[in-house]
Design a protein around this nucleic acid. Sequence first.
RNA 1: GCCCCCAUCGUCUAGUGGCCUAGGACACCACCCUUUCAAGGUGGCGGCACGGGUUCGAAUCCCGUUGGGGGUGCCA
Length: 498
Amino acid sequence: MTDRNASSAVPNGQREGGPRFRFAPSPTGFFHVGGARTALMNWALARRLGGTFVLRIEDTDEARNKPEWTQGIIDALAWIGIAADDEHFEGPHFQSAHAEAHVAAAHRLYEQGDAYYCDLSGQDVQDRAAELGITGYDGYSRDRGLGPAPGRVLRFRVPEGTTVVDDLVRGAVSFENSTIEDFVLLRGNGAPVFLLANVVDDIEMAITHVVRAEEHLPNTPKQQMLWRALGHEPPAWAHVPVLVNEQRKKLSKRRDKVALEQYRDEGYLAEAMVNYLMTLGWTPPGAEEAGSEIAGWPEIEAAFALEDVNLSPAFFDVKKLTAFNKQYIKNMPPDEFVAAASVELPADWDRARFAEIAPHIQERLETLKDVPATVDFLFWPAGADAEPVDYDEASWDKATKPEWSGAFLADVIGAYEALGEHPWDAATLKATMEDLMGRYEIKLGKAQALPRVAVTGRAVGPPLFESFEVLGRDETLRRLHVAADRLGSSAQPTGAGG
RNA sequence: GCCCCCAUCGUCUAGUGGCCUAGGACACCACCCUUUCAAGGUGGCGGCACGGGUUCGAAUCCCGUUGGGGGUGCCA
């Protein structure tokens, strides 16, 4: 069955203008990461092959779909680089606008004898199946010659034989037509179902390549029969594996975090998301030699091929996504990073001050959301009447544990104050502290512990001396004194001294 | 139940009969570097589901088993 000889070259029915791909989401409220992945694949192919990416909103389920969902889809696509104003982009088209064509096609099928009406209700079908010991519809009305009437559904007359689906990623997949029931085309109320609408629209829009998730594979033989019955050669099909969760179940919005928007809001970069999504089932060329799977869109677009897509479901691993995100943040141009990170900052935080510390935190972040907590100490109220530093007590305890800590802190304060008019810069601050270390026979790693907790409240953070420099002489010394006082008073009982 | 798909380290993958004593990435561990945390460097752990074939030779081809997934709507 793995006859993967179908080429990615345009198959039959190509019209001028190159191959036509399509992405046909239904507007259900948010954009699924799995949808993003298939959209990206279609986009890569459409652009490289000089074709078109058609966006079609499948909004035929009136029960749930609002105009804003459509805008949400367009925004989400734009976020991952699929721009509506790109020359390869077409749409959005709305399926609901073609309802008449769908119905007309159904009638044509009926006229041709490829479809017939049936007056059984869903319950009737179930009852008969139970009685006959079979599943699904048994073809009860096939030869009853019923005409259209309210309440009657129109069913496709599945022919005998075998239907072979030529899939670009899986090869030839064959289905025994006898296992496919006469499926519904028009509901009892006359409304067309997805299977039909989808095919009619694809034909109408001259789609040459249908690239979608594996869950649609079982629908494909039915759609292929429809294409033929409607007088057209089917398009090239390609079913890529689904994305699964840690339980290996298809990602679902009910139990899994699948909204693209959510990742965006949580500080993930579009480029990282795009790159990661494309590594699910596929590897950018040269990744092995480079020792990295990080690849920009141009590279991906130039190399992506359906034939190279892996066949098994892939686990959407947020940990790996996060690792990619960290890489991308680290590699951002500095000014771009400042701009992106600033969005996460409270309005009253001084942007200029943030820009000073930015280079020192850029390689320490997993997401943009981590920015505020990393630099917050620079924006705490300053001055004599400011609130006391909110120390992380565990860090404080550990930093004040060494018996020399209090004396060392006092020395640091003394030395820093002795700097007088000397520039308050990181290099000076570091050298000054290092001069003191000899007396205590400690290394910088230990020496900086208490000063760090004193000024930032925590045991970890951006490089210390740079932080002191950005914070400024007055506030740094003030916090150092506050800590010394706190240490002094707590040490009082045992009369600890220098 | 029935139909279809799939099966390489924990995860994502490279691999299309000999280059494989199976390579990379993420995660994890250790060490180095070091101003904490990161980053970087080095090393390590860890896999071809099982059983039959075919072949001089199989992770790669065939069959079966087992396991996983998807679909079975008058949803899309």
